[in-house]
Design a protein around this nucleic acid. Structure first.
Length: 318
DNA sequence: TAACAGGATACTT
DNA sequence: AAGTATCCTGTTA
């Protein structure tokens, strides 16, 4: 039979602290149907170790570096973006302004900050949607989507693992749960998960209600424009990463953009991103590179004239 | 030792 | 059938 998911993930050389789990049952499909089975242990640092060693963390760090700082900065016990988003989405104009004494200028700049925050939150949601390949509206989530979202959120906020407590739940189920329901399923972080889900619900709500107004609408159109990418091709995915140098240049970057020559700086990381995108937990660079090589014959990607390790070239650069 | 090349086959859409 | 995903043997830097 085949090797287990954990063996394969454990084989990636980048995470010496992540020990493979010999007792993990084999996963013939290699699909991500039950993240809870994949890696139940926790590291010495107290960080949860799941099926995706530290992809989420390094991803969000990368996002944090440039244009998507909002979610990262919102530590579990500090001001959460839900509040800022909630302000804009739920409250009426008359009640949202705390001070009636500070003239228009104060109010104006406060609003500016709020819309900025909303924009950042929506961008983060869009990025997460793209990375996880899920809808932005929690109501549309299947059980698998719910698990993906949980994994993502737990890694983002360094929360202990509680996916198992939310198995068999669809997005609709999740949305209909109260904060108390969340706490019952997860004593430690149910409230955090509830609050975070509330952000997503609010963001989705902005689409229907006209509450989002100007900036919200712009941000939302950016969100929706991102996720109708169902069957994505590997070459498209690579190009997507290359077009977001702020986020991904540490793992893949152009050597010569005009000629379409690029270098994979962190093969294991790119492979894991691809695995997340395609819902293939056992993806690695060996298999990803095999798929790239299939492009040689098709004339989509090739090796540059002077062949170098981890350097490829799009045959038709944009 | 990791990257590379490509054949064979299974799987998903 | 197209596009991988997986597995494999052998080669190269």
């Amino acid at each position: 039979m085949r090797s287990t998911v954990c063996e394969q993930i454990g084989n990636t050389p980048q995470f010496p602290n992540v020990t493979p789990h010999p007792h993990t049952p084999p996963d013939p499909e290699g699909t991500w149907h039950d993240p809870g089975d994949v890696k139940p242990s926790r590291s010495l640092l107290g960080l949860p170790e799941l099926g995706w060693p530290d992809i989420f963390q390094s991803c969000s760090e990368a996002m944090d570096a440039e244009d998507e700082p909002c979610l990262q900065k919102a530590a579990p016990h500090s001001l959460s973006p839900a509040e800022a988003l909630g302000e804009v989405v739920h409250s009426s104009p008359s009640s949202s302004s705390p001070s009636l004494l500070d003239g228009q200028a104060e109010e104006g700049s406060l609003e500016q900050v709020q819309t900025m925050v909303v924009g950042e939150v929506l961008k983060d949601i869009a990025t997460a949607c793209k990375l996880l390949n899920i809808e932005a509206d929690p109501l549309d989530w299947s059980c698998v989507h719910v698990q993906k979202w949980l994994l993502w959120t737990e890694h983002l906020y360094r929360l202990p693992q509680s996916c198992k407590m939310f198995q068999e739940l669809t997005g609709k189920d999740l949305c209909s749960m109260s904060e108390e329901d969340f706490r019952q399923r997860s004593m430690q972080c149910g409230d955090m998960l509830y609050a975070h889900l509330d952000i997503w619900k609010s963001a989705a709500g902005m689409k229907e209600g006209g509450e989002g107004k100007s900036s919200g609408d712009n941000a939302w159109s950016e969100v929706v424009s991102h996720y109708p990418s169902q069957p994505i091709h590997l070459w498209q995915f690579l190009r997507e990463l290359l077009l977001k140098p702020n986020n991904y240049s540490f793992c893949i970057r152009w050597i010569n953009k005009e000629k379409g020559i690029f270098k994979i700086e962190d093969s294991a990381h790119v492979a894991r991103l691809w695995g997340i995108r395609k819902n293939r937990p056992a993806m690695n660079y060996d298999k990803l590179s095999r798929s790239i090589r299939q492009y040689y014959k098709k004339g989509i990607i090739r090796k540059p004239e002077v062949s170098r390790r981890l350097v490829y070239q799009f045959v038709n650069p944009v």
